[in-house]
């Protein structure tokens, strides 16, 4: 029975595929996008999170940490992240200390997904596996999605595409929809910005273009990073070559910013979201290349 680190299960997801969906977020990602809105999804290990605003200074974490990673001091509670085992003993009733991620079996998650079956049936929705990179756990994904299939629940994954070909192949037979991001058409720029080249991503997209299921290619638009004409025109060319008819552009947002301090990280990106006028200009680049382009 396969299991994977789950950091969130979100019901009534209405923007991650068709219909009303339940999105299962898995931890662990091969890429390090500076704009990542789920920074706790990047590492595959369980991570402590600390919400200073919710902390009432009760000392629960200090008393319960077996390695004394939490220390009460004059300026409040100090936490030495490097000592953390991820044991969750510090998780407090006030919700100030959390641990992101919990290993759960496909069966267990499937039971949660199945609870909304009546809503999927009515809306044509289903389950979306997201992350992080859900295809880092192909056995888990295959088992969970296969189970959902048997219930008649629609299946989708939201992937970076930055995975070995066999991982993708393993889940395609139990998938209805794939959502995949193309961040940079050029591998060097991809590597420079995200920490890994794009060869596996392009390979995944090529493979999916020949696949019989529903494919949705999306490009997050990050001003100053990938919104130049060169990148977008090259992306459009690549999609055309693959025979992919359309693309969705996702304007940059700062939804994840609040999570960074909880991980003792700072949010490095300081760019404004693209204006609606700018988005129109960028959509036109794709339309000029003969693709249908919409904003998501």
């Amino acid at each position: 029975m396969a299991s994977a680190p789950v950091f969130n299960i979100q019901r009534y997801s209405i923007h991650d595929g068709p219909g009303i969906r339940t999105t299962v977020f898995l931890k662990g990602c091969p890429l390090r996008c500076p704009w990542c809105s789920n920074p706790e999804s990047q590492l595959a290990v369980l991570e402590p999170m600390y919400d200073q605003a919710a902390c009432v200074g009760c000392g629960w974490c200090v008393a319960h940490c077996p390695r004394q990673a939490a220390e009460a001091g004059p300026g409040g509670i100090r936490f030495r992240r490097e000592l953390c085992l991820g044991c969750t003993r510090c998780v407090c009733p006030n919700g100030a200390r959390l641990v992101a991620g919990e290993y759960r079996t496909a069966e267990d998650v499937g039971a949660v997904v199945a609870r909304d079956a009546v809503f999927y049936r009515r809306s044509g929705g289903g389950v979306t596996l997201s992350g992080g990179e859900p295809l880092l756990y192909p056995d888990f994904a295959r088992e969970l999605l296969g189970f959902c299939r048997q219930l008649g629940v629609g299946t989708a994954v939201e992937t970076t595409g930055c995975v070995p070909a066999e991982s993708l192949e393993a889940v395609l037979p139990v998938l209805d929809t794939v959502l995949i991001d193309l961040k940079f058409a050029d591998s060097r720029r991809h590597a420079a910005a995200l920490g890994a080249g794009n060869a596996p991503v392009l390979e995944s997209i090529r493979r999916l273009a020949r696949w019989s299921g529903q494919l949705l290619v999306r490009i997050p638009v990050i001003p100053g990073w990938n919104d130049d004409g060169e990148n977008l025109a090259a992306s459009a060319r690549f999609l055309r070559e693959c025979g992919i008819p359309g693309v969705t552009l996702l304007p940059y947002h700062r939804m994840g910013e609040g999570k960074y301090p909880k991980l003792d990280r700072s949010y490095a990106l300081q760019v404004p979201p693209p204006s609606p006028e700018r988005m129109e200009v960028l959509l036109d680049i794709f339309r000029a290349a003969g693709l249908t382009a919409v904003q998501g």
């Binding site: 009534y12 947002h253 939804m255 910013e257 609040g258 999570k259 979201p273």
Partner: peptide, 26 residues
């Protein structure tokens, strides 16, 4: 009073989130 509105869902752009979990700026 975030404690009273934990269930409040907002949509920004392509994503939905619990309002109280967003950073003050967002």
């Amino acid at each position: 009073h975030p404690e009273k509105y934990r269930d409040l869902i907002v949509r920004v752009s392509g994503y939905s989130a619990y309002f109280t979990e967003l950073s003050p700026q967002v």
